[in-house]
């Protein structure tokens, strides 16, 4: 067996050390960060930014990280017992897989006794201040009190049907996110978005339905919404309701709203004539491009549209994009104009 070659990495002057570390794969930097406080500090000083880091609760608990070129996830081993809520008692060992070679690695630490400790380590080295907590199918197997203790007050929360209506309710009630909520209609009681969710003063609210299982968002519910951004996917919201909503917005409803979008498969083609019926508007030239940031964080360039004005002078633009039956309604408010 060939002798292992060694190189005194930390003896390199700091600039050369950081230069060499910038050439390492992300997964190798993660390994390096576990080895000592000093090596963790060096990895942290590279200012790598993951986008995003997510704690994913499903059959197990994963911490998922994504970078431009690679994604990887770390997980913890646990034993499930039927009918007994699961907790990961002492997650002293973390497992992670090389995204390129699929090789499995593990690291054991006596310093970390909670999943939150591991999450904080990863969030620190990859500079993600707001790791997202995802409740996916089967997440209800986890003891809620244990989850709450570790992840209370998340900034970003994603909730799918966890396998138990009661559990969904508890998650939405207790783990109120401070910034962003992405929720499937299936996880709401009676499959209707509750007002307690709509009026949480969130920065971003995304409500989703499965294709073929569309649910309706009522106009009154929308008027209660206090989020800055609201995105509806596969949610039924009629053209008539859009028209009424715009009229009420002109009169002063939804004052915090900055961006409202609906992506859906309407039963009829949506048109500016219908949604702006009896509303004064000004067409925007088709060659005029404006950038909007959508719920995914991605920027889109929108062409043309129709400008409208609220009674207080605030301007908004209504866009209809895509072609029937894949149309999208976008309502963007220009608070700073």
């Amino acid at each position: 067996m060939a002798a292992e070659v060694s190189f005194p990495l930390l003896k390199l002057p700091i600039d050369e050390l950081l230069h060499a570390m910038r050439l390492m794969e992300i997964i190798d930097l993660l390994k390096l960060s576990f080895l000592s406080r000093r090596s963790k500090n060096h990895v942290t000083s590279l200012n790598l930014k993951a986008d995003p880091i997510r704690v994913h609760l499903h059959r197990s608990v994963d911490i998922r990280c994504r970078f431009n070129r690679v994604s990887f996830y770390c997980f913890f081993k646990m034993k499930h017992k039927d009918d007994v809520p699961t907790i990961v008692k002492k997650p002293g060992t973390i497992y992670f897989r090389d995204p390129v070679t699929s090789k499995l690695y593990s690291w054991n630490s006596t310093k970390y006794s909670k999943i939150r400790d591991w999450l904080d380590h990863i969030a620190t080295i990859f500079h993600e201040e707001n790791p997202r907590i995802d409740f996916d199918a089967n997440a209800s197997r986890f003891d809620f009190n244990w989850i709450y203790e570790q992840f209370k007050k998340p900034s970003h929360l994603y909730v799918d049907h966890t396998g138990s209506a009661e559990y969904n309710k508890k998650v939405l009630k207790m783990l109120k996110p401070t910034e962003k909520l992405v929720a499937w209609f299936d996880c709401f009681e009676n499959q209707r978005a509750p007002q307690s969710i709509l009026n949480q003063n969130l920065d971003d609210l995304v409500l989703l339905c499965e294709v073929g299982r569309e649910k309706e968002l009522f106009l009154n519910d929308l008027l209660c919404c206090t989020s800055k951004k609201l995105s509806l996917r596969q949610v039924v919201f009629s053209q008539k309701s859009i028209n009424t909503f715009i009229k009420l917005w002109i009169l002063g409803s939804n004052p915090r709203l900055e961006l409202f979008s609906i992506k859906f498969f309407p039963r009829e083609m949506i048109s500016y004539e219908t949604i702006l019926k009896r509303i004064r508007f000004e067409p925007v030239p088709e060659d005029r491009l404006r950038s909007l940031e959508f719920y995914s964080g991605e920027m889109y360039s929108m062409r043309g549209g129709r400008d409208i004005w609220r009674l207080d002078g605030t301007k908004a633009t209504v866009f209809i994009c895509g072609h029937f039956p894949r149309q999208c309604f976008v309502f963007s408010v220009w608070h700073d104009s």
């Binding site: 292992e4 070659v5 060694s6 190189f7 005194p8 990495l9 930390l10 003896k11 190798d28 390994k31 390096l32 576990f34 080895l35 000592s36 090596s39 690695y105 593990s106 690291w107």
Partner: peptide
């Protein structure tokens, strides 16, 4: 592995 890395880089 992380343990091998410690030996390789003399960390």
């Amino acid at each position: 592995t992380p343990a091998q890395l410690r030996r390789v880089y003399l960390l």
